[in-house]
């Protein structure tokens, strides 16, 4: 097409009707495209999210064979739900005999660059935190990302003591985040040299989340029976 043809094709400039027609017409085409793509991809995205979540949960409790979602109610109990609502959700994991292995709790907090989102496991029988999985983080590659790979840091969460007091309203020893190599108690988390801010952020997230959730879960264990 040359310029002469182009000039012929272009509508007369300045008429409001042409502008409304263009804007509304293109808006409708765009809306149709977005809705079509959304409808087509929605079930696939949901399936992908479920698979990613399952992978994370079974990494924390390798013997688990199924899981259920529970939501905390204002009355102080947990109720089983089917939809993943993001807020106040606790995952309960069961072995092949449908015996409760433990619960997995979501935690979020500010890292060095952006929000870190993670899951950590809680074994009510032993009253310890066992294992974690980082769901989302944009920490510095090679430094902050050590929170996902550093073996010594991961070891902090192998048997992290979160025993609940007799009245069941708080932890006997609140979790403490300490300097690298200075851990002396089972309720302390050693940070990582070279990734201090990121590892401290993870430690603080778990500290706050555990103080909020672990007493509630421990006192309402019967709610998680299958």
């Amino acid at each position: 097409m040359n310029d002469a043809q182009y000039v012929q094709l272009e509508p007369q400039a300045g008429r409001p009707w042409h502008m409304y027609r263009a804007m509304v017409g293109i808006g409708l085409i765009c809306a149709f495209v977005i809705v079509s793509v959304f409808q087509f991809t929605l079930p696939i995205i949901k399936q992908n999210k479920l698979e990613l979540l399952q992978k994370a949960l079974y990494e924390i409790f390798p013997d688990a064979r199924e899981f259920q979602r529970y939501q905390y109610q204002t009355e102080g109990n947990f109720v089983r739900i089917n939809e993943d609502l993001d807020e106040n959700i606790i995952f309960a994991l069961y072995d092949q005999d449908k015996k409760l292995l433990g619960t997995v709790i979501r935690a979020k907090g500010m890292g060095y660059q952006d929000l870190i989102e993670m899951l950590y496991g809680y074994q009510p029988q032993l009253q310890v935190i066992s294992g974690y999985h980082v769901l989302a983080s944009r920490e510095t590659p090679g430094l902050g990302t050590k929170i996902e790979t550093d073996k010594a840091f991961q070891k902090n969460f192998a048997q992290l003591d979160v025993s609940v007091n007799a009245s069941g309203d708080k932890l006997i020893n609140p979790i403490e985040v300490v300097k690298p190599g200075s851990k002396t108690h089972p309720w302390q988390i050693d940070t990582i040299t070279g990734a201090t801010i990121s590892s401290r952020a993870v430690g603080n997230m778990v500290t706050d989340s555990a103080a909020q959730w672990i007493p509630k879960i421990t006192t309402r264990l019967e709610d998680f029976e299958p």
Binding site: E10, P11, A13, M19, A22, M23, I26
Partner: peptide, 15 residues
């Protein structure tokens, strides 16, 4: 291109 007036072209392209 034949239906997009000059005045609103950038808005249409962005959309």
């Amino acid at each position: 291109r034949a239906f997009i007036p000059r005045q609103v072209r950038i808005a249409c392209y962005i959309l």
